[in-house]
Simulated scan of single mutants.
Amino acid sequence: MGNRWRAVGVLAGALFAVNVVARVIIKLGFDGNDTAADRVSLGMFVVIGLILAGVVFVQGRTRPVGAWGADVGAAVLVALLLTVLVGPLLVGDNPFGGGAGLFFAQIWLYLLAAGAGVAVGYLVLTALGLDHRSQQLKRYAEIKSAKPRRVVRR
């Protein structure tokens, strides 16, 4: 059980680290340039989506959807809270300084990027037939086809 929570914490930490790096790049390099800051933010969301797609692809091969889904959901929730509440404080901003609109926009964009990453990872995994359920069905079909038919005498 401890390894499961450790994995959730590592994933949440990695997602938060991507956000911190993006915030530091924006603060140091593009403080006054809104267009460049938007591009760095877009890049951050793409990296978050790719990380989650990779995690889902790897975890989905050996674990059922319910198991890895709960872990990824918990990690995304923790990373989201850290991103919107702690992330701005690290670069000297107020989390609620931009108003409620910006605060909730960050939440929706983060959830959109996370959801897209999870969906892409799972869809690719399922399309290739490598997901846990497909592997179970494949093993079942192999076992059933390997047994000869029983002859019934009348």
Rank of each mutant, 00 (worst) to 15 (best):
Y140R: 14
G115D: 10
A67M: 09
A114Y: 01
S134C: 02
G97D: 00
A79T: 05
K147R: 13
P148F: 05
H132E: 13
F45S: 13
R139L: 07
G43I: 09
Q59N: 08
D131M: 09
R139M: 08
L112N: 00
H132T: 08
N3P: 01
A116M: 15
A119W: 10
L85I: 07
D71Q: 11
L28H: 03
A146D: 13
G99Y: 05
G73C: 11
G13E: 06
R133G: 04
W68M: 06
W5D: 02
L111Q: 04
N19S: 15
L102H: 03
A12W: 01
F103A: 00
G49M: 00
L123P: 06
M44F: 03
L137R: 14
L90G: 07
V91E: 04
V58C: 03
G73M: 10
G69W: 00
I143Y: 09
A53V: 13
A79M: 07
V24T: 00
V91T: 14
P148H: 04
V46R: 08
D34I: 13
A37S: 14
L125P: 00
L28D: 04
G2Y: 00
P88I: 09
G32L: 08
R39M: 12
F45N: 14
F57N: 01
G73Q: 09
Y110N: 01
L50E: 05
F45V: 05
R154I: 11
